[in-house]
Design a binder for these strands. Structure first.
Length: 327
DNA sequence: CACTCTTA
DNA sequence: TAAGAGTGG
């Protein structure tokens, strides 16, 4: 399994933040938040970022701390959220993936804590509730900060890639290698890390291996994606070889006498995902800092000192880069 | 997901 | 050399 295998095929290069000034980046909100919830939250004491009625709001701190990175480098983020309703034809695959994710989360918790099934159930329900609040409050904060939000019909990642393909944005911002299979022309990774961002070039990747987009997706399926397990004994090298020798997924599977459940659907998910052309947004950002502060520290009871510096940086960077003229 | 170690 | 398993973040 493993999507990271795609990394070994991807055309990657290091870029400077300075080179990104003035650009627009479509950020997969779910992906971006996940990063904070697995780092920031995980290393702090339990309940530190929880409201009196038990709602986890660590994401608010994450957003406040993460946004300055964009603004200080004159990058406009556009946050793309997953759609709630999935199309009929993708239901089957989505369900399978969700099932797997649930299973994996459960397994991870169990392994980590060594707890019994009752404890696992508690953790699971908490995780479920967490998700709703996180998305709700992230939207709430971004709205007050006037940061563009796009609601994707289905997968946020796919919508972000589509917007990049349409030229609506300059880059997709994601840690996920799926962006490459989705045909995102340029994907930026490590936007939130200390060092320089990493650029993933779609066309260069195809050219480097002399592949079509379809073939790249087929290689992904052979190695395994979020939606399917790969073929046993097939990694990046073998997958490329198989597709090159046999033309496409079907030829490769035939040669290996292998089968991938739902392969047609998964293929379509990457090549023709459910996206919209009507994703409009305004990059002229006029944040209501007071409203944002009130929302975070009063409405959601986040200790003011946790977000003070972040809000300061947002204010300063917006004034400096001229993104904001105050409204 | 990255890094490292083990195995074929 | 390639793939898979394991672990830490």
């Amino acid at each position: 399994m493993g999507n990271a295998d795609i990394r070994s095929l991807a055309a990657l290069s290091e870029v400077e933040f300075g080179d990104l000034a003035g650009s627009i980046v479509a950020v997969d909100a779910h992906n971006w938040l996940y990063r904070y919830l697995t780092t920031t939250v995980k290393f702090t004491r339990d309940g530190a970022y929880t409201t009196s009625d038990g709602r986890e709001v660590a994401n608010l701190i994450g957003v406040v701390q993460g946004l300055p990175k964009f603004f200080e480098h004159d990058i406009t983020p556009v946050f793309v959220f997953d759609g709630g309703v999935t199309e009929l034809k993708t239901d089957e695959v989505d369900e399978r993936r969700e099932q797997r994710e649930r299973y994996e989360a459960e397994l991870a918790e169990a392994k980590e804590s060594g707890e019994d099934s009752a404890r696992i159930a508690t953790l699971e329900s908490r995780t479920q509730r967490l998700t709703d609040t996180i998305h709700e409050t992230t939207r709430g904060l971004l709205e007050r900060l006037d940061v563009p939000i796009i609601e994707a019909p289905a997968e946020g990642e796919a919508q972000a890639a589509h917007m990049a393909r349409q030229g609506q944005v300059d880059y997709v911002g994601s840690e996920d290698y799926d962006a490459l299979l989705l045909g995102a022309p340029y994907t930026l990774r490590q936007l939130t890390s200390k060092g320089n961002p990493e650029l993933m070039d779609f066309e260069a990747t195809l050219a480097e291996h002399d592949l079509t987009w379809e073939q790249l997706v087929d290689i992904g399926l052979l190695m395994g994606t979020d939606f399917n397990d790969g073929i046993d004994g097939v990694g990046p090298k073998t997958a490329v070889k198989l597709v090159r020798e046999h033309g496409d997924l079907w030829g490769a599977l035939d040669a290996r006498d292998a089968y991938i459940d739902g392969a047609e659907l998964i293929r379509e998910l990457f090549l023709h995902p459910d996206v919209t052309d009507d994703a409009a947004f305004d990059t002229d950002i006029h944040p209501d800092m007071d409203a944002a502060r009130t929302y975070v520290t009063e409405e959601w009871e986040v200790p003011a000192d946790e977000v003070a510096r972040g809000f300061e940086r947002i204010e300063e960077s917006l004034v400096q880069t001229g993104l904001d003229q105050w409204g």
